[in-house]
Structures are given as C-alpha cells and as structure tokens.
Design a protein around this nucleic acid. Structure first.
Length: 864
RNA sequence: GCGAAAGUGGCGGAACUGGUAGACGCGCCGGCCUUAGGAGCCGGUGGGGUAACCCGUGAGAGUUCGAGUCUCUCCUUUCGCACCA
C-alpha cells in the first residue's frame, strides 16, 4: 500500500475495474428484489454544473447503498436533449443545434464517468434520437385517436418585430429579449393533451405516495386545485337572443352582495360588445399588451371598463352592470366572475377604483363593517345578512339553499372546477420532436400513418431568431396528404420538451427494443423506487409524468399508474458573488476562487480582495452558480485537484440533500483532509502486518468501548442513509467514530483485531459515498473481494447492549445534573436516584416538590 | 398577486416522536513538531460573569412540568406560477 493518498491514481483504477467487471450492467430477474434508482436526466448544456454533480451523487449513494443491501439495482442515465438553449447557441455560433447538442453530450458523458457513478451505460438514451422521439409521435397519434390529444387555440407571447412566438423566458420586463419590442398576446391553433380528464385521479392518488415530500404533494394538490362551488348564469338578451352569462364561485353565500360582473377581455360577450363600443374594443386591444404568465397578469394593475350593458341578477332580478376586467382569466372557470366587493379583496379594490357600490351581506361575529378600507375579516365565513330570505344562514346552509334555488330556476347548481388546464404541447420551434400531422386542403388535419414514423427532424438547419426554420424549409414541410395523395403541408410545430421527459424512465427499461415503445421489462423495473431531482420540477415535470404514465396504463402498455414511489428533491448549489463597479457603474464579477477573504480574530470576514492585485472587491451576497455572476465552479477542475471522492464527500457532508448548498473551498479541503486521514489510519494499521482474528469474549474495557461505539455508529449510519436520507449526519457519525478510533492506541494483538474490525466497518460504511478510496482500502485491509460486491454489515447486538445509562436531571426544566442508572430501571428507582443527587438537592432546597416527570432512559424533571 | 418552504455561534450545519441547544466540519486563537507546508499533531472556541450562575435558536405573544421543535401575528430569504429545463 502506498503511504500517500493519491486520488488521481486510485480513482481511474477503480473505475476501470467496474467497467471491466461490468459491475453496473444489470439484468431483469437477477438475484434480489429490483431497485430502480433514477436521477433526473440532464439537459446537455455544455458542461456539467455542480447541481448535476450533487443530483447524481445523491442518486449514486442511494444506488450503491441499496446494492449493498442485496437489491438488483439499476441506475440509468440519458439526455434531455431537445430545447431552447441549443437554438440560442446555434444562433450565436452558427452551428446546427444537433451538432452542438451531440458534442455537449460527449463531453458531459466523460465528466460523469470521471465521477465514478454506478450507471448502466448500455441504457443511455438521448431524446433527440429518432429512435426515441418516434415513440413520442406514435403515442401522440394513439392519444389523438382516443381524443386525449386535440386541437384548439391558445394564447402565446408574440414579438411583433421578429414576428415570432417567444417563450416566457424570452420576455424580459414585457419586451422581447432580442428586439426589445413590447410583447403582445396572440391566439394560435395548438395541440393539447387532455390532462384534465385525469384530475380526480391525479389528486386522489397523491395520498398513495407516502414516499413523496409533503410539500411537493401539497403544491401538486394546489396546482390541480379542486374547488367545489356553484356555477350559475346571469340571464341577458342580445341581438334578439337569450343567453346566460355563466360564472363560477366558491362563495355563493355572498350572491346577494353582487354589484357588478367582470368578464375576461377574450370572453365572447366582451368581443361582441366591442363591436359597437369603441372604448371596449380599445380596452381589449390594450389588454393584449404584455406577456401571458400568470404572475405577470396577477401583478398588473387591475383595470376595467364599463360596457353599459346589464345582465339580470338570477335571484333579485335586478340589473347588474357588466365590466371587462384585465384580471379575469379566460382559462379558469367561465372567464367571468361575479363582483362582490363587500367580501372579496380584489373586487373591493376594483369597486373602490371605479366607484362601484359595495354591499355587506355577511355578518362575522357582529363586527362593524365599513366600506372605507378593506379588512381581512371581510372575506371570512359568517352568517348571512341583508340577503332577504337567506338571512341568518351559515355558509353551508346558504350555499345549499342558494344552489337549490338556482337549480329550480334552471340557472345553475353545484359544480366542481379545477385549476389545472389541459397541457398545450405545440411549440413554434425547431429543436424538438415534430408533431406528426399533415395539413391537407381537402382532408384537413391528417395523422401521419404509423409506417411513416418517425417524422424525421432535419438536423442541418440553423435558426435565426425569426420564426421556426422548419416553416422555411420546403423539403421538410412539402409533402403529400396520406389520405388523398394531394400536395399538403406538414405541421411545423414541435412538441414541448416536457413530452420527452414524461416517459424516458420507462424507455431505459426497453432501451434496445426497436419494435415497441416499451416492453415487459418496463413492468419489471417500474415504478421507479427512488427518484432524485431538483425541487424546481415539483409541479410540472412530475405531474406530466404521472399523467403520461396513466395514459400508457390505460393503453395497456404498463401496469403502474404512479411512476415514482419515492421522491427526493435536492436543493440548489449556491456560491458567493464578488464584483467591482467602475466609474460608469459597470459591474465586473470575479470568481470566488480568485478572491481572498480577510478575517478578524474571531474568524469573522472583514473584507475581500482580489488575489491578482490585492485590491478590495465588493460582496454581492449569495446566488446560484451562473455564468453571468462568474461564480461557477467547474466539476472537472474539482475532480482534477482533489478527486471525485472529495467532491462527492463534500457535497454529501455539507447539508442534508434537500437544503440549498453553499459552496465553500475550505470545506472541500476539509473533505479532502478527512480522506487523507482515513488513508493514513489504514496505512499505519496495515504497516504493522495482518491482524489476528477477533475474539469478542476476551476484550478489556477500552476495547469493548470502541466496539460499542463502532456498532452504534453502524446503526446510526444505516438509519441515516436508508430511512432518513441524511447523509451529512451519517458522515458526521463516521467522523466522530474516527476521532475515537484515532485515540485508541492499543497495539496488543487483540487491540489490533478490534481496530481491524473498526476500519473495515468504516470503509464499508463510507463505500456508497466515496467508492474509489473504499475500493482501494478494502484491498489494503487484506480483503480479496471487491467492496462493490460486498453486503452492508450487520451490527453486533452484543457490542451495542449496555449495563448502565446516563440520565439527565432537570429542576424546573433546567439541566442541573446527570446520573447513572442501571439499564431498564423503573421510574420510581430513577426518581429516587434523581432526588438524592447532591446538585438536585442544592436547587430544590426546602421548596416542596410538586411533581417529578420521568422520561424512560432519558430524563428526569423535578418541578418545585 | 397566488401557491410552497426556510430562518439556530464568525460560517455550513446537529438536535429524528415536545425532553441535555450548538454533534460533525470549516474558520479563528494558543501550543507542539518539522524536511517551514495550502503538511501533521494537541488544546480552546455562543454571549456575559473571578465564580456560583445568568442570557441565548429572525421579532412578538400563547400552550406546556419542559418549546429550536406545537399555535397565532409580523419580518426576511428561497422556489414554482403552465413556452427555461
């Protein structure tokens, strides 16, 4: 064994061993229950970033740990290879997105390999490969046949200068990112997937996912947004025809407080009224300004115009004025809302602004209502007042009575509505999966026949930022109608990349099947046992995948409905930001690696200077690693300098996986130091020659104590990794044990045997986290097997059991003493021992003891 | 604006089911060693106090024998909001 820890030498050796042994190439039905460990596949943006390293390290630790538990573990990897950044890069460098993407994949694959992840690389896939995306097209056509996919218009961001559709990301403060032109909303035809058909199931099934974080389930539930309320119509007449202006409300109890109705600018009635009212038309036109995001609409100033048109209140028969409001969303409910300014804050603001009447109709504990200023209690539930025959009813009674009356009148009734909208998948972009439709003048929209799939995406185009290149490439869009053979135009929209990521985890199982999308192997591996990925995917990607899997289940293609049994959402990787400002106010950012921090005698940072010139730099706080802030750390540099194991150990030790991780060079060095210490400890031990076999009956006190600690540590580490997923405390426990082991200087043959066992346990416990050094040290300790094939050790109950326990004694809840009692002593014995303690007596003095609380094996509290 | 979460030493964090606040690591201080290193080893390190002790988990209230943990209000930060992935 070498004396010096040299990761650059041992890591490639370990990796070569795993590759030669095909350690991670797994087959269905091999020994042990299957375990599918999946990390969200990366977008091939160029280089791996630290977020990737963290994500895949977490997944890898779990995969290797489960493998040591004897499970048949698969951990695949692939590339979410379609998307906008490839088009941007293409525009910048005049390189086709396909080449850019494939080059990136090649580079990033090598980066991943240098980190030693236990991946079955045979299963690798890229979503831009026709062998993959053909199945997007194939399933889309099946959905079209079943009516799950359909066509309707949708609203998009429109850049009037570039004459192109913009992604939300490309709209900066209401303007197109390249042109600076004010963005408009525009309606275009698009394909949708009927996810709303599955709302009830997607919501209810969240309860069947105990392995998901509560907050993610809550976010999904809120996103799906089930509300039970009342849908009813305000009758009106226009152009000699009778209509109902339908609204939905969860507060039907406030119906007698309606003083206006607000409708969305896109509402058919608004469009109709605009025909003869120029100011309404002008307002609707004005509402087209700005982007389409919900946040933007919600933050915009609430504006409206009166139409002069009235509808009839369904219960009072009084006329109610109709307004067009920019805050009413056409996509939710009926695109119209009843205005109850007395009990809804948004309506209140709106009424104040336009001097509309405000009526209080709910009595909340007799509090005095004033229409001068909004009070939060106005929106609370209470008893109805000023509501005629409904006076005195509570919320539930009122809703029941009002809904019944509306039903009798034929004007409405109870209804369940969902916030979730159908999933629009059409994108007016090049670098995505073509939608397999042909538009024929005679036959309409014709699906591409299965035998013509895949519709291949040409790979040699370079976008220029003004519209999709596909729409400018006749060799792509010129085709014949599959039905009548006449010249026809191919659909040039591509699919949302969320489509690609909604089922890739099933394709890994059937990666080499060219005849079918998935096969029975998917049923062996699915569902994913552990999914690891960023919290930013908590809603969309996970919800779409849950939907898509259900569609495939309903088509009889897979047996499961829920794709991911356990979910771990890892936090982001942040770093410090340093900059200087020049006279012109321009900011120059400096990489934290080039900055030195000076500290006072307490270790508190006082100032930061640039290493290059020794001059001060300003601190810009903490932010995600990004090119623009120049605060990224390159994984490859890190691996070159310290090795993959140090990178992995650092990531896992700093914080729990779900927390944000603040980068720290000092802590990286700390992780490296720990591995050096471990190496040296094994080196010193094995330099004395092989240890004899351990005979546990003949141990002295310190030897027994060390064994006790070793096996207690094993219990804690096992629990931390398998149940709690708290790798940081698992590592801390090993460190704590190593500190004790460092002080254990027993050189007798028995002492050396105890140390041998301790070191083997340490190496086994660390093997999932730092697999390379574990691989080498296992051999150094005289073991001939490969540690990657070893089983997780079992704690020895004899080593763990104890004769006496230390119990904490409090007086009035404050720690005053500690006492030793025999293990398993009854409460009365413990109580008497506590009261007899000198320190306790000092605090009790002559005060009467009111109560003594004994918490078994832990604590006594004497209350005086 | 709506939805979700998080605030603990100089720093990252620990405290798992309401029961010892600060494990472990970093930084800092002191010492040792030496081939003077971005090396290693030993000790100390929340604040106040000579000490006994007292005070301390974003702010304020509450429940409890006991609150970092539970409840309410407020403040701050982070994530998501449907065309970024």
């Amino acid at each position: 064994m070498e004396e010096r820890y040299d990761p650059a030498r041992i890591e490639p050796e370990a990796q070569a061993f795993w590759t030669e042994q095909r350690s991670f190439e797994v087959e269905e039905g091999a020994e042990g229950d299957k375990y599918y460990c999946l990390s969200m596949f990366p977008y091939p943006s160029g280089r791996l970033h630290m977020g990737h390293v963290r994500n895949y390290t977490i997944g890898d630790v779990i995969a290797r740990f489960m493998r040591m538990q004897g499970r048949n573990v698969v951990q695949p990897m692939g590339w979410d290879a379609f998307g906008l950044p490839a088009e941007n890069a293409a525009m910048q460098n005049a390189v086709p997105p396909a080449k850019w993407t494939r080059d990136n994949i090649a580079y990033m694959r090598n980066q991943l390999k240098s980190l030693g992840f236990a991946i079955d690389w045979r299963r690798e896939l890229a979503t831009c490969d026709p062998e993959y995306y053909r199945w997007n097209q194939w399933l889309f056509l099946r959905m079209l046949e079943k009516g799950i996919a359909y066509k309707k218009t949708g609203v998009v961001n429109w850049d009037p200068v570039d004459k192109t559709v913009l992604a939300n990301e490309q709209v900066i403060e209401g303007r197109g990112w390249r042109t600076g032109a004010l963005v408009e909303k525009r309606e275009i035809p698009m394909y949708y997937l009927r996810i709303t058909q599955y709302t009830e199931e997607l919501l209810a099934a969240l309860d069947s996912l105990p392995g998901w974080p509560e907050r993610v389930k809550l976010m999904q539930a809120n996103w799906i947004g089930k509300s039970i309320g009342v849908n009813f119509g305000f009758p009106y007449e226009i152009d000699g025809q009778k209509h109902l202006l339908r609204v939905f409300t969860t507060r039907a109890d406030t119906i007698m407080g309606v003083t206006f109705v607000a409708i969305a600018p896109e509402h058919p009635l608004a469009q109709r009224l605009a025909r003869d009212q120029p100011h309404v038309a002008a307002f609707i036109e004005e509402c087209r300004k700005g982007g389409v995001t919900e946040a933007e609409i919600a933050l915009a100033e609430k504006k409206g115009v009166p139409t002069g048109f009235t509808v009839t209140h369904p219960l009072t028969r009084e006329p109610v004025h109709v307004w067009v409001g920019n805050y009413v969303l056409m996509a939710y409910g009926e695109g119209a809302v009843m205005g109850v300014p007395g009990h809804d804050e948004r309506d209140f603001e709106f009424a104040k602004k336009y001097r509309l009447p405000i009526r209080a109709v709910i009595d909340v504990n007799g509090q005095t209502y004033s229409s001068d200023a909004w009070q939060p209690w106005y929106a609370e539930y209470g008893t109805l007042a000023n509501s005629g025959k409904y006076d005195g009813l509570d919320y539930q009674q009122a809703v029941r009575a009002i809904a019944a009356d509306l039903t009798t009148l034929g004007l409405g009734g109870k209804q369940t509505v969902w916030r979730l909208r159908d999933w629009g998948i059409s994108r007016q972009r090049y670098w995505g999966c073509p939608i397999p439709i042909v538009h024929c003048e005679k036959c309409g929209d014709v699906p591409v026949p299965d035998e013509q799939l895949p519709v291949l995406l040409p790979e040699d185009l370079v976008p220029d930022g003004s519209g999709s290149p596909l729409a400018k490439t006749p060799s792509f869009y010129e085709t014949q109608c599959p039905k009548c053979g006449a010249p026809a135009r191919r659909e040039t929209d591509t699919m949302d990349t969320f489509v690609d990521s909604s089922w890739y985890f099933m394709r890994y199982a059937s990666f080499d099947n060219h005849e079918a999308m998935v096969d029975e192997r998917a049923n062996y591996w699915m569902p994913v046992d552990q999914y690891v990925g960023g919290i930013e995917h908590a809603i969309l990607h996970l919800l779409y995948s849950r939907f898509w899997t259900r569609v495939m289940r309903d088509f009889g293609m897979v047996g499961v409905a829920e794709p991911f049994m356990n979910l771990l959402t890892q936090g982001m990787v942040l770093n410090e930001i340093y900059f200087r400002k020049d006279e012109a106010g321009r900011l120059t950012y400096f990489n934290p690696a080039d900055v030195e921090v000076q500290r006072d005698e307490h270790g508190k940072p006082v100032r930061a200077t640039l290493l290059a010139d020794g001059q001060p730099v300003e601190t810009g706080g903490i932010g995600t690693m990004s090119k623009s802030k120049n605060n990224g750390v390159d994984p490859t540099t890190l691996v070159k300098e310290y090795g993959a194991d140090t990178a992995r150990l650092f990531m896992m030790f700093m914080v729990p996986p779900e927390d944000t991780l603040l980068w720290s060079d000092e802590s990286v060095q700390g992780a490296f130091r720990f591995l050096k210490k471990l190496w040296k400890m094994v080196f010193d031990h094995v330099s004395e020659g092989p240890a004899q076999a351990l005979v546990t009956v003949a141990l002295d006190g310190p030897q027994r104590e060390l064994r006790h600690l070793a096996h207690e540590t094993l219990v804690k580490v096992s629990d931390d990794i398998s149940r709690r997923r708290k790798f940081n405390t698992a590592i801390a426990a090993v460190m704590e044990f190593m500190n004790a082991l460092g002080k254990f200087d027993d050189a007798t043959p028995t002492g050396r045997a105890v140390r041998q066992e301790a070191l083997e346990l340490v190496v086994l416990m660390l093997a999932p986290i730092v697999p390379h050094i574990a691989h080498t040290l296992w051999h150094a300790l005289g073991r001939e097997t490969a540690i990657v094939d070893e089983r997780w050790p079992q704690p020895d109950p004899d080593a763990i059991s104890r004769d006496t326990l230390e119990i904490v004694v409090q007086v009035n809840g404050k720690l005053r003493s500690r006492i030793n009692v025999p293990a398993g002593a009854d409460d009365e014995t413990v109580k008497q021992a506590a009261l007899a303690d000198a320190n306790v007596q000092r605090f009790v003095l002559d005060k009467p003891v009111r109560k003594v609380i004994v918490v078994k094996d832990k604590l006594v509290n004497v209350v005086v």
